[in-house]
């Protein structure tokens, strides 16, 4: 029983961190209708920067999110205004090509400046755990989870309690009606892209501690993140949260009772099963040409 509880708790901790990482992808898709393939590369870029910061200054990798999040917010804003905006209104396939191109540029940049090798930030608490009864909770995952909860909570408050957040939600739900109430499409899209990038700023810092990474790791991460948002429903933040928890639980329960090799594959089997029943994902709106 303790083993099961431990697996579930670990699954929830990892799921919370996945939810943070996927929130940016689904936020950007919701407002811009852009599948940001570069989101995984953003994570690895930030993880590499965090690792470098930790090695050179000793700043705690997870706490360094207070530096990386604003930096990524700025990078996201600049990328939108000067690159992504140019494909505004074009076919979704263009956005995939463009953001894949951005991912490749980031990968190439990291290969040049950091080299093609595995890294992982290992602060003092890296191998320590909290003990609650019979359950062991790795400190790194607990801290990462808490950071994710704080950021997701902040994002929720921003989206529901501020005018900027309402503008993002309104544009995501009905772009033409948003224009009719005076919401500027470009400014809102830039804000959404910047916020989505900032969430990768926090996610990447957490990733640097929890998972070894190298420049091409972004392929693995974008696969997971896309899996989460497709399972939850493209553009749905609650969907991303549930999708991420399913992924986290699928991984830890399979690793506990099956094998480590199967842990990621099981999640994709869950996605296939869900999509057979609900092609729009768990929380997604079904698109029909006759009502679009």
């Amino acid at each position: 029983m303790a083993q099961f509880v431990q697996a579930v708790v670990l699954g929830v901790l990892i799921g919370g961190i996945y939810a943070l990482m996927a929130s940016g992808l689904t936020l950007i898709f919701g407002v811009l209708r852009i599948v940001n393939i570069a989101q995984g590369a953003f994570l690895i870029l930030v993880a590499t920067f965090t690792w470098w910061l930790w090695r050179t200054t000793g700043i705690d990798p997870i706490l360094s999110a207070v530096i990386t999040a604003p930096l990524m917010f700025g990078l996201g804003w600049v990328l939108y205004r000067f690159v992504v905006r140019r494909i505004s209104g074009q076919a979704a396939s263009m956005s995939v090509l463009l953001t894949f191109g951005i991912a490749l540029v980031i990968e190439g940049f990291l290969n040049v400046v950091a080299g093609n090798k595995f890294r992982s930030a290992t602060p003092a608490y890296f191998e320590q755990s909290f003990r609650v009864g019979d359950i062991l909770l790795p400190k790194a995952q607990v801290y990462g989870f808490l950071a994710a909860v704080v950021v997701l909570g902040g994002l929720y408050l921003l989206l529901t309690r501020t005018w900027a957040g309402r503008a993002i939600r309104a544009t995501s739900q009905n772009p033409s009606a948003a224009a009719l109430v005076g919401i500027g499409a470009t400014a809102t899209a830039a804000l959404a892209f910047a916020l989505g990038s900032a969430s990768a700023g926090v996610g990447g810092s957490i990733l640097s501690v929890l998972y070894p990474f190298f420049p091409a790791s972004h392929y693995d991460w974008i696969s997971r993140l896309l899996g989460i948002v497709v399972l939850g429903g493209m553009g749905s933040l609650p969907g991303a949260l549930v999708g991420a928890l399913v992924l986290g639980l699928a991984e830890t329960l399979t690793a506990t009772y099956g094998s480590l090799q199967w842990s990621t594959l099981v999640f994709y089997l869950v996605i296939m099963a869900v999509l057979l029943v609900r092609p729009q994902g768990l929380f997604g709106a079904r698109l029909r040409e006759d009502v679009a």
Binding site: R169, A170, Q173, A177
Partner: peptide, 20 residues
């Protein structure tokens, strides 16, 4: 048709009319 924000409350929808 379909001019509202369906996932937002009636209050939020009406208040967004005062965005400016």
């Amino acid at each position: 048709s379909q001019a509202l924000f369906p996932g937002m409350t009636v209050r939020e929808n009406v208040q967004l009319g005062g965005y400016l």
